[in-house]
Design a protein around this nucleic acid. Sequence first.
RNA 1: GUGACCAUAGUUUAACGGUAAAACUGCGGAUUGUGGAUCCGCUAUCGAGGGUUCAACUCCCUCUGGUCACC
Length: 429
Amino acid sequence: MSFFTITHQDKHSLARTGVIHTAHGDIETPVFMPVGTQATVKSLDSADLENLDAQIILANTYHLHLRPGEDIINDCGGLHKFMNWNRPILTDSGGFQVFSLSKNICKSGLSGNPDYYKDQGKLALIDDEGVTFTSHLDGSTHRFTPESAIEIQHKLGADIIMAFDECTPDDADEKYTREAMERTHKWAERCLTYHKNIKTLKHLPDMPDGKSWQAGKNKQFLFGIIQGANHKELREESARAISAMDFDGIAIGGESVGFNMDATKKILDWVNPIIPKNKPHYTMGVGFSPSDLFEVVERGVDMFDCVAPTRMARNGALFCHCEERGTSDEAIQFGSPRLFEARDNGNKHRININNAKYRDDKSPIDPLCTCSTCKNYTRAYLHHLFKAEELLAYRLATIHNLHFFLNLMREIRQAIKDNKFLELKKEWI
RNA sequence: GUGACCAUAGUUUAACGGUAAAACUGCGGAUUGUGGAUCCGCUAUCGAGGGUUCAACUCCCUCUGGUCACC
């Protein structure tokens, strides 16, 4: 069985449905992947995630390496067993954290020693071999190389692992962006080589069937990452280079991806003719709002992740079909809540439950939502929990926001199969 | 009852003879390969009355309220 099967191609766009096969089960695409950086989707446990029918979640190499350390997780039987999650997991390689920790390095040049950068308050130093960085936890010095990033991910035991890349800031000059991109390509080759050649690990993470996990082929799938910032030629060159390598999937990374949707759309339009259609396409960091999901799915993206629904939940920003302006009942009576919302709320599709107007609102967060939070609790109660900073607020809100995104993805997959994707998109945007 | 001190934003506190600063709260906004984090706006005619002065939250008097000490 191949890793990825396309099950339906939309007739009017690049949108498509598919299935990714992993040792921990199948994933229907296009899929939104909730983020669980530190081996937990904040405020939820694995039973909550199963109830939400999350198909796959993310964890982060950088954070788990620093704490508790991959050896401890490996010793506990791997990430799945460690966090009691038996469905697929994807680990990010840590490349993005290097970017976010060292944002301004390229402006000041690359020569010098780590102490210099430390003194400047910069937390990472990139060279051709790898990255030296200081921990955000205790300031201790660490180093990632393509080889170590893959080895850590082998020990963590996620189903899908990412190549170690360098994500450059968009305001870097073109010379540096090219340099970093070429380095990312060399690192991609090194990740592949290390991934394929590794023979054994001290402790093999457990597989769901009770057999031992085997490093390498067909057990963990490795994705390459296209970089090149917002330069057309660099993006095309990177797409060609990454596509030519033996990766199981193709990711598109960069500061703009997800953050700036106009740039994201352009980048996808540039690379789409180049990247192989039979591999999963993954835009990293996309999913800030419902409209973002439509934009990338329309351009043939199969996987995406974003911290937005979970982080927003913790800050009281709750997604909604219909923003009130008046009450949610009136919105329903309006006839088409989605259109009502699109016109009246700048298409943000969310409310801030902290707002005083929800103090005595006895309707659910979203009257059209079927999640357990909306079935059982009122806006007034959620408002109170947030004001009182009660821990239940975070869990109920996270359940709602994730349900909203995962359910929207189910609708999108169905619409693609019915060749009605663009019609569904019009309802939302 | 006597004496001392105090009264400034919802709360706790600043400053200054030239129309008031801050923290927290409150009311909004931001949030993108996760810090339950953080950031950004907005909110006061200074207990009441009178006096001195070009000008008083600031100095003086009275009242009201409070705190402490003594009887």
